[in-house]
């Protein structure tokens, strides 16, 4: 983390007196609305909160014991992991392929690029609604498309795997643009001289990609991995609107389950907080492991 020890304005004494003025607002806001709630989440995960009155009662580890025996929780955990496992490499691979394509000679290249990242600015709710227009089993666009071309009709809503696939597909739709942007930026930073040198030595296109380009994409890949995993573990809006977690629990993810538990008919905010804590711990653990791995891989170069 040497990047953090960048020299600032050097002053004698214990530091700049107006530092609190400048750092204060953001520290206060983040402390009050992010750090404090995270601490409170740990506390509330050990309590039972009465619906309506909000009275708090200490229950120790009961919520975590409930969780250990809760099949829906494990289903959501599994679904979330599976979702991340498919969408993270999927969006990154497609993003890289698109970045390579969009970095090559193409007519109307800016237009093509714009089209790929346009879905990024659409809200999760809107994406979910557009998804339901596409995937509706009785009146959806994809059904009409399948009938027109004589293809088999997919039960997007009533079959668990198909519903899961619908969530994955719509997620890829909005995520590939982000991966493409990052990879495109990284590709453009690859010095052309490297490619020219490799070419002079007779390297094929694939060899140049494999041995020149790919190694230089490491930092971008790491960044995308972290960002995409955080996104995947947080996924809520799209699932909530598109499938509501169904059919059954086929598309239930930790986000929707935590919300339903705390604010849905179960009205169990203590348990909801406990689920939230688990999501946080998993996200944090993954990030730290990745960070250490990436640091080890580059031998502390950063």
């Amino acid at each position: 983390m040497s990047a953090l020890s960048v020299p600032g304005v050097r002053r004698r004494g214990r530091g700049d007196r107006s530092a609190p003025l400048f750092a204060g607002p953001v520290v206060l806001l983040a402390g009050l609305f992010l750090v404090l709630p995270m601490g409170l989440a740990l506390v509330f995960s050990l309590t039972e909160i009465a619906p309506l009155s909000g009275k708090v009662g200490w229950v120790g580890l009961t919520n975590f014991a409930t969780m250990a025996a809760d099949p829906t929780f494990f289903r959501s955990l599994l679904n979330t992991a599976l979702f991340a496992l498919v969408t993270v490499p999927g969006s990154m691979a497609i993003g890289l392929a698109l970045a390579l394509l969009m970095n090559s000679v193409l007519p109307a290249r800016p237009l093509f690029r714009t089209v790929v990242y346009l879905p990024l600015v659409i809200s999760g709710v809107a994406v979910g609604l557009i998804g339901s227009l596409l995937f509706n089993e009785t009146s959806g666009v994809l059904r009409a498309l399948a009938l027109t071309f004589g293809l088999p009709v997919v039960p997007w809503q009533s079959s668990g795997p198909a519903a899961f696939a619908s969530v994955v597909l719509i997620t890829l739709w909005i995520r590939v643009g982000f991966c493409m942007i990052i990879y495109l930026a990284a590709l453009q930073a690859v010095p052309p001289e490297l490619h020219e040198a490799a070419q002079v030595e007779g390297a094929s296109g694939w060899q140049r990609f494999r041995h020149v380009t790919l190694p230089l994409l490491g930092p971008a890949t790491f960044f995308l991995l972290i960002m995409s995993v955080i996104y995947s573990f947080n996924v809520f809006d799209t699932v909530f609107v598109l499938t509501g977690g169904g059919p059954g629990s086929a598309t239930e993810v930790l986000g929707t389950y935590a919300y339903d538990t705390a604010f849905g008919p179960a009205r169990d905010q203590g348990y909801g907080a406990a689920i939230g804590v688990v999501v946080f711990v998993l996200t944090m653990a993954f990030t730290l492991v990745q960070w250490r791995r990436s640091r080890a891989a580059r031998d502390g170069a950063l």
Binding site: N136, E137, T138, P155, Q157, S158, G244, G246, P247, G248
Partner: peptide
């Protein structure tokens, strides 16, 4: 229809 079960969105 299979998409008209108890948790369906239709």
């Amino acid at each position: 229809a299979r998409n008209t079960s108890t948790k369906a969105t239709t």
